[in-house]
Design a protein around this nucleic acid. Structure first.
Length: 543
RNA sequence: GCGCCUGUAGCUCAACGGAUAGAGCGCAUGCCUGCGGAGCAUGAGGCAGCAGGUUCGACUCCUGCCAGGCGCACCA
């Protein structure tokens, strides 16, 4: 049950009846002020010039044509305000209580798409910036699945390039008791990993250098991936596939893709290297040619990425691929789009979400070393639910600052508990109701729901599908926690009425009234459960 | 120098070009033998970085400045 699409199409029809051939988008928005109802539209003002009539007159004419089941229409000045009808809200409560997939839709019409996220080099630990990408990507997938897309989660493992080699060389150096080579990896974890390699690959350091480096590179990448899997698993992030860069070369996908570019005339030979040289049309925003094979014959990351694009769009055939990248990679967006065009792939099918940096605010004593705080450490300090909630609260383009001291100290004031508590509370009410009235009727008479806070809660519940749709359409998961908070607020207000006056509680002497209010509790609880579920945050039955 | 992102309450951040810009934290004042107060109610706090422009209407779109972050490899 949804009001918005009904109102929207009726409004569009009404505008057409006024003789407007191409009606502007009805542009229904959630009314900000309850005085203005629940949804409002400003079409009348947009039509004023076209129809040569003052907006209030147009709004009034439209209102007269709109006799809708979900909502009443009223012209106020140039605005058209819609107020959800009590009868509709009551019916919605029943439907939202019963529907285990309330808010899900077929918006995506089965579109197959891939979301690739985190995909950091397996040469160092995950830090707090990666955590943000992990949660964003994960919730995006949950959201897209919920709205009728067929989503696959993928991690692209850079296990084959220059960096992998350097990592292998660094491990070898540590095994031999030396310092890592110039440009190598120096972290503590390299030493630990070298010790593990001594166990798992006995005598590797004695083998010829290229062979030892290759073996250690492979070993190191595999072990790092294991760690990633464990850390991401801790925060509820799982992948359908860990895709190996190496496999693009072993199966010949990358060379074939590059050959395809050559045949289309987008490669050039210069300064001993092979370059990707898009024509002006393909280049778009990309300004320079880029090396694919270096002078020494080794390939760059771009060479693999060309293969990866072909693999996903032309071989696996995803309709869209959504990439979640750190903002420090924004310069590659035009590059990848140029490659896509050169390969004959519509660049619109490649969607890149850039997430701004995560920094950590520490006391003034310590230098800001935000990016070096490991994700595991942050999980330890915040817990999974709070961590996910906090990450989701920010839109991707907003830089994010975490104050760990505050976040830790606030543990019990965290907004996530506010929502979880609302859920647990509703569960508890249900328990009390069943104990008090062992023989409650199976069906609720929802027409007994009349009080302002009851209808306010029902109204909030009715907005859930709108929220889901908008978040999915705009690829903006951060809308979820804001909705959850509003819903939880309505739940607490509804509950609290019973503290003022026992007659206003859910559990009252009258079984029919109890049953009706219980239905509202169930609708709210179901919606909270679904919303928290999409965020990957627990919806506990007791706390 | 060029490019991308961001400047909104004391702090951290929201709001498909619409009416009086909202939350959380912090602050102030009430409400605890309760269907679990991890809650509720009320309040203070804003010249939306600055200056122009487009529009009936701009926090939102455009231009120019200012400030911060991030990029500009034969690293990924």
């Amino acid at each position: 049950m949804r009001a918005l699409p009904v109102i929207s199409s009726a409004l569009e029809g009404a505008v057409r009846e006024l003789g407007v051939e191409q009606p502007p988008n009805p542009e229904l928005i959630r009314a900000r002020n309850p005085e203005y109802g629940d949804y409002s539209s400003s079409v009348a003002m947009k039509l004023a010039r076209l129809l040569r009539q003052p907006p209030p007159q147009i709004a009034a004419r439209l209102a007269r044509r709109l006799e809708l089941e979900p909502a009443s229409a009223e012209a106020v000045g140039g605005y058209l305000n819609f107020r959800l009808r009590t009868s509709w809200l009551q019916a919605l409560v029943r439907s939202a209580a019963a529907d285990e997939g309330y808010g899900s839709s077929e918006l995506g019409a089965g579109e197959r798409l891939q979301v690739e996220f985190v995909s950091t080099n397996p040469t160092g630990p995950l830090h707090i910036g990666h955590g943000r990408g992990a949660i964003l990507g994960d919730v995006l997938c949950r959201l897209l699945d919920f709205t009728g897309h067929r989503t696959e989660r993928e991690y692209y493992v850079n296990d084959y390039g220059t960096q992998a080699q350097k990592f292998g060389a660094s491990l070898l150096a540590r095994l031999r008791g030396e310092e890592p080579p110039e440009g190598g990896y120096t972290g503590e974890y390299v030493i630990e990993l070298a010790q593990a390699a001594r166990r798992d690959l006995p005598g590797v350091e004695a083998r010829p250098e290229p062979e030892a480096v290759a073996a250690l590179a492979e070993y190191g990448a595999a072990r790092m991936v294991e760690r990633f899997r464990a850390t991401l698993g801790r925060i509820g992030v799982r992948y359908d596939r860990w895709f190996s860069e190496r496999s693009l070369w072993e199966r010949g996908t990358a060379p074939a893709a590059i050959e395809r570019l050559r045949q289309r005339g987008y490669l050039k030979q210069a300064e001993g290297a092979v370059w990707f040289a898009p024509g002006e049309e393909e280049a778009g925003e990309e300004v320079e040619d880029r090396v694919i094979f270096r002078r020494d014959g080794s390939h760059t990351y771009l060479a693999s990425d060309i293969g990866y694009l072909v693999d996903r769009f032309l071989e696996r055939g995803y309709r869209r691929v959504i990439e979640v990248w750190g903002a420090d990679h924004h310069g590659y967006v035009p590059r990848m789009k140029a490659v896509a065009r050169a390969l004959g792939i519509d660049p619109e099918r490649l969607v890149v979400i850039l997430i701004q940096m995560v920094t950590l605010k520490e006391g003034r004593m310590s230098k800001r070393q935000g990016r070096f705080v490991s994700l595991d450490e942050l999980v330890d300090r915040l817990g999974v639910d709070a961590l996910r909630y906090f990450y989701l609260l920010r839109s991707p383009e907003a830089p994010m600052e975490i104050d760990p001291a505050l976040a830790t100290a606030q543990r019990f004031d965290n907004p996530v508990y506010y929502a979880q508590y609302a859920h647990a509370r509703l569960f508890n009410v249900e328990r009390t109701a069943v104990e008090t009235h062992p023989g409650l009727p199976a069906d609720a008479d929802v027409s007994l729901l009349q009080l302002p806070w009851e209808l306010a809660l029902a109204r909030e519940i009715s907005f859930w599908p709108d929220t889901v749709e908008q978040a999915a359409r705009l690829l903006e998961p951060h809308r979820l926690p804001y909705y959850v908070h509003q819903l939880a607020e309505a739940v607490h207000a509804f509950y609290n009425a019973g503290n003022e006056d026992p007659a206003l509680r859910v559990v009252v002497p009258d079984p029919a009234l109890t049953r009706a209010r219980l239905e509202l509790c169930r609708a709210a609880r179901n919606t909270l459960r679904l919303a928290l579920g999409l965020m990957g945050v627990a919806a506990p039955e007791r706390m």
